[in-house]
Design a protein around this nucleic acid. Structure first.
Lengths: 205, 205
DNA sequence: ATCAAATAGTACCGACCGGTAATAATTCGG
DNA sequence: CCGAATTATTACCGGTCGGTACTATTTGAT
């Protein structure tokens, strides 16, 4: 079918590696040498496949959000499990991802938000867009919970959504900073105590 | 007294400017050109006064922690005001600092923690040390509160301390990401609801 | 007036940055 | 088997990075 020389590396697979490099080192911290080494593609190949460094970062961040970060988020919105369970599952997934030595720790989007002081404006805007989407997902889920009577009457669902959404930021920084596992789990449990119902479930981990 | 040519710029004042550059742009993102432009000192002057870039960053971060970040932290530990008030004051001070257009937004230590993927190991260790000290300050204050009977009996003071300490991380990221003011304040109020006593004080701001 | 001391300022270093042109290699259609 | 097409690879570009040697300037002591 294709006439030319066959590709040495699948660009899809390379993108996975690129995500990890940017995730670990940030936009400025990741050099094209890092990217070529990790992806197996030479510089011109990267350029042809993804565009310049800024475009690579944008594609990497989008790929991260839609994949790694997106599926727990989709579970948060779509699962019909009790609110506390689904929230806890989401928070624990952050910690679990961090404990996996094959992936960088923290949240790529959060790292990106922090680095905004030395990033192209378009990438700052993109990072904030993904942050906003996550926040909206929490709002959606909390409003549904209120409709379903899962919250104490008179609760401000949006305020609670903003609060839980912000816990993601706290957890992302904690795992990035290698905070002791127990301290992170305690934080999750205290945060969940803002919910009605049984206080703290015994940790399944 | 001093024999040579008089200094054009006071190194103490220059350090203030250096703090802001690193705070805003990070370790990699801040170039020596940025530092010379902001401080008014030429490169050799900076080098003579502070050492290499890594030493500059270390001194800047330390200066930040002992000064800008240190005084609210000291207030947290030393103030004899009710726990809720002193915590709220600390959290609001983060938001207020962020609204001040003359200072960068977010927390320098938190930014530093996040950037750890592309930073010299010694600076990573220093950042974590300051993070740990903040966490210890919260532990100290919460234990004192428990001694004083400010917490509900049976409360785990350390868990609560870890939780409130982590709220600082969340707030730092939120203000860095330009999250709407109201959402940040709501988050603070919900977090404080983990405390016994009156629910949410009307906002003095 | 002279010299030592301390600082400012200029110019420069090698290394690496992001980005690209030019070339070599490998495939398929004819 | 030849040539068009597609990719890999090499070499290179100007610019900027962090860091430093060198020179010029301004002071106080003598």
């Amino acid at each position: 079918m294709a006439r030319g020389r066959p590709r040495k590396t699948d660009p899809e697979a390379a993108l996975q590696d690129i995500v990890r490099v940017f995730w670990e080192k940030g936009f400025e911290g990741a050099s094209l040498s890092d990217l070529t080494a990790a992806s197996g593609m030479a510089k011109p190949g990267l350029y042809a496949a993804f565009g310049d460094k800024q475009a690579m970062y944008a594609k990497a961040l989008t790929h991260y959000f839609n994949g790694i970060s997106g599926s727990p988020l989709a579970d948060l919105v779509n699962s019909s499990d009790p609110l506390r369970d689904v929230l806890r599952r989401y928070f624990v997934s952050i910690v679990e991802t961090a404990r996996d030595p094959t992936t960088p720790s923290g949240c790529f989007v959060v790292n990106s938000l922090i680095e905004s002081g030395s990033m192209p404006a378009a990438l700052v805007a993109l990072s904030r867009e993904f942050d906003r989407r996550r926040r909206d997902a929490f709002r959606t889920r909390l409003r549904a919970a209120q409709q379903a009577g899962e919250l104490a009457p008179g609760t401000d669902a949006d305020a609670l959504a903003d609060f839980f959404s912000s816990q993601v930021l706290a957890l992302a920084v904690m795992v990035r900073a290698d905070t002791e596992f127990d301290a992170v789990m305690r934080t999750i449990d205290v945060a969940l105590s803002a919910l009605p119902g049984r206080p703290a479930p015994d940790r399944p981990d």
